[in-house]
Design a protein around this nucleic acid. Structure first.
Length: 446
RNA sequence: GCCCCGUUCGUCUAGUGGCCUAGGACGCCAGGUUCUCAACCUGGUAACACGGGUUCGAAUCCCGUACGGGGUACCA
């Protein structure tokens, strides 16, 4: 029997990174076992039953490359089936009608304005084997009769969940630990239907620095936010896979396809994991570096177009293309790109205050240094090595090594102390006139 | 409150009774890279929550304590 797993998100208008991780682990399980990955949209809550919310969800999954084999199946379309099960429970005594005061009402058919509660058996032990946590046990005395049907005529989550899992013959339910306490109720529901139990695997939660479940109010939780910050989908998948699971050989950076080969849900660990943006950035920069130039050019497009800090007519694609060779290895995210090249496409460099203060703190020295440099640049060959030699010589006159001597020039030209290799940039992408103009502008500001 | 789950370097993890004076990665720190660094290279720092058992031997098994988290809705 091939495993059948599902990702069953509630459409909230964005994909939460925790949900994305759950989707990923289901996908990994299906792909690594030859199973079927099913997408089911849990939109039983009327407010969430909106097509555009679902659309966004599908797009994010698509962006991550998590393709599904069946679905999307909409839970809201199964209303009749859910009603049928609840009706049967009413008839066979597994559930009862209940009014707005939570009082039991006699009757064996659904009534408008009445909710339905599942009857909890007394002192019954319920245990199951979780693939991640091992044996987990509950006692029904700690559980209450719970609502399975709302008075507005719609099914509750647990009921819909149980019925759909049974009908879709889900073999493995892989989801977040926050759903662990709901399992005994679902198992009871399944038993009442005479359906089989799926195998459960509860993944550790993703937490923030306060060790609390990632929340959308405090934390950056939308996958789309990371996309907009310039993270690559394969880096996102790679990083998410590392939260709660580790490759047996310790090689952390590897493609989704390679992860599929070595993934095992039994190796998932139990403790909550902190979503560490710094490590994510490290992984992203690694993927960025390994991109072919062609691929990089394509992916960076959104960051150098309309959104860029320069006006479109000043942008020069050829210069940019040359700059890519110099900066690709330095980027942590795609959104870092503009600030490494913006000075080429702006009338004036955008001067960073801290950089200016740091390199121009002795205006006398900086001025004479820049004067020497400007003089020697007036009439020289416009080549990387020549420019570098000239700056080295200018530095010697004020008793500074190249490392220090290039700093004021770098800030005058680019506006920042950090950037692409300076001499190459000037030689390949700037004219003598532009460079001299910026040097003199900087000297005037001293 | 009650129920459930968890606890290895700051962080993510390896470790399934001897190979552990606990390994890797990120971060951090130091040095290197005769152009910067937020890039790259090398090195370093740093952890088995605590207390009892079991065992010749425990990070690994059992019990308890502490701490953390999740659940306990006519949300999902």
């Amino acid at each position: 029997m091939k495993p059948r797993v599902r990702f069953a998100p509630s459409p909230t208008g964005f994909l939460h990174v925790g949900s994305a991780r759950t989707a990923l682990f289901n996908w990994l399980y299906a792909r690594s076992t030859g199973g079927t990955f099913i997408l089911r949209v849990e939109d039983t809550d009327q407010e969430r039953n909106r097509p555009e919310l679902t659309q966004q969800l599908l797009q994010e999954l698509d962006w991550l490359g998590l393709d599904w084999d069946e679905g999307p199946i909409y839970q809201s379309e199964k209303l009749e089936r859910h009603r049928e099960v609840v009706q049967a429970f009413l008839e066979n005594g597994h559930a009862y009608l209940c009014d707005s005061e939570n009082k039991e009402v006699q009757g064996t058919s659904l009534l408008e304005g009445m909710a339905v509660r599942f009857r909890m058996p007394q002192d019954k032990t319920i245990s199951f084997t979780d693939l991640v946590r091992g044996e987990v046990t509950f006692n029904t005395d700690d559980l209450e009769d719970f609502v399975i049907w709302r008075s507005n005529g719609t099914p509750m989550f647990l009921l819909a969940n149980a019925v759909d899992d049974a009908d879709m013959e889900i073999s493995h339910a892989i989801r977040g630990e926050d759903l662990l306490s709901g399992v005994p109720k679902v198992l009871l529901l399944l038993d009442a239907m005479g359906a089989e139990h799926p195998v459960y695997a509860h993944l550790p939660l993703l937490v923030n620095e306060q060790r609390k479940k990632l929340s959308k109010r405090r934390d950056d939780v939308a996958v789309g936010d990371y996309r907009e910050k310039g993270f690559l989908p394969e880096a996102m998948v790679n990083y998410l896979a590392l939260l709660g699971w580790g490759p047996p050989d310790g090689v952390e950076i590897r493609s989704p396809a390679e992860i599929v080969k070595i993934f095992n849900v039994g190796d998932v660990n139990k403790a909550a994991a902190f979503f560490d943006i710094q490590k994510f950035e490290h992984i992203n920069s690694s993927y960025l570096r390994s991109l072919s130039k062609e691929d990089f050019m394509q992916r960076v497009e959104p960051w150098i177009g309309e959104e860029a800090p320069w006006s479109r007519e000043n942008f020069d694609p050829e210069k940019f293309s040359m700059m890519v060779d110099l900066i690709q290895e330095k980027l942590r995210t795609l959104s870092d790109t503009p600030r490494f090249v913006d000075f080429l496409f702006l009338e004036q460099p955008d001067i960073d205050e801290d950089s200016w203060k740091k390199t121009m703190k002795d205006p006398q020295v900086s001025d004479s240094l820049l004067a020497f440099i400007a003089d020697s640049f007036e009439d020289c060959e416009w080549e990387t090595e020549v420019l570098k030699d000239l700056v080295t010589k200018a530095g010697e006159k004020v008793d500074l090594k190249l490392g220090k001597a290039q700093a004021p020039l770098r800030v005058a030209i680019t506006g920042r102390t950090v950037g692409p290799p300076l001499f190459e940039t000037m030689a390949c992408c700037m004219t003598r006139e532009e460079v001299l103009k910026r040097i003199s502008a900087a000297r005037k500001s001293l």
